[in-house]
């Protein structure tokens, strides 16, 4: 379980996070919807320890992590760009976190094979990033994070650069794998449909403040999510054609 208590962060005197409170339970996916500039990315970077100077406190399973550097927090942050290591194969990319932790060769091979299989990448393991498609690269990036079983996985619009079809496919795959591995994730997106598709709980970020909804219906009903507008739009189109 990850808890954030009154997190505040400012850049050159400008507040970007204005007291964020949050609790992410084990195994759940919190989908955070927000426009660009609302503070989503800053929140993730603060959680990952990339931005260190902030106010408030953070705990993972009850232990304070505010003093820990990024490599000791057990929180992995995935960017929109897959950022694979171009000099390593897909298999080596996935194994990266285990190598850093000096895992034994047998353990490593077994886990990597398992992750490759669950991400449907078994036949691409020996390929280099340049030889993979956009969707495959994102899957490798996902596998590279997944394999080290982070306390929480932070995803920053990970599928934004993919085409529509691949994006839907990735959302389904993400849901399946997150469920299968009981992963705790915070999924940031500006697309309400994507939020609805991947999330088990929902939140909305605006102007440095995070509003967590009690359930799916509350999220849909909230004006800020924009989902009502979208439903109305499609209804209007339907009526025009009738």
């Amino acid at each position: 379980m990850v808890t954030l208590n009154n997190i505040r962060k400012a850049f050159e005197g400008q507040p970007v996070l204005k007291g964020v409170n949050l609790r992410v339970e084990d195994g759940e996916t919190l989908a955070v919807l927000g426009r660009s500039g609302s503070g989503k990315t800053t929140l993730l970077k603060v959680m990952a320890g990339i931005h260190r100077a902030y106010e408030g406190s953070m705990r993972v399973d009850g232990e304070a992590i505010d003093h820990l550097p990024p490599q000791k927090r057990g929180i992995v942050y995935l960017y929109q760009d897959a950022l694979l290591f171009p000099h390593l194969t897909a298999r080596e990319n996935i194994a990266f976190g285990l190598n850093v932790r000096n895992a034994t060769a047998i353990d490593r091979e077994e886990k990597v094979t398992q992750v490759l299989r669950s991400l449907r990448l078994s036949e691409h393991g020996q390929k280099y990033p340049a030889e993979l498609s956009g969707g495959q690269r994102q899957r490798v990036a996902f596998g590279r994070a997944l394999i080290i079983q982070p306390a929480i996985l932070l995803l920053d619009e990970p599928f934004a650069s993919l085409d529509f079809g691949t994006r839907r496919e990735m959302q389904r795959l993400f849901k399946r794998v997150a469920h299968q591995h009981a992963m705790t994730t915070l999924f940031v997106t500006h697309d309400a449909r994507e939020a609805l598709s991947v999330g088990s709980r929902f939140a909305h970020m605006e102007d440095g403040r995070l509003h967590v909804f009690p359930d799916r219906q509350a999220f849909i009903n909230d004006e800020a999510s924009g989902i009502r507008d979208e439903i109305n739009f499609w209804n209007e189109i339907d009526h025009t054609h009738e």
Partner: peptide, 19 residues
């Protein structure tokens, strides 16, 4: 920005400065 993000990623995956 890309190199910076890559550095951060390696950090969050558990790498130290040498990594």
């Amino acid at each position: 920005e890309r190199i910076r993000n890559l550095e951060h990623l390696v950090r969050t995956l558990g790498g130290n400065f040498r990594t």
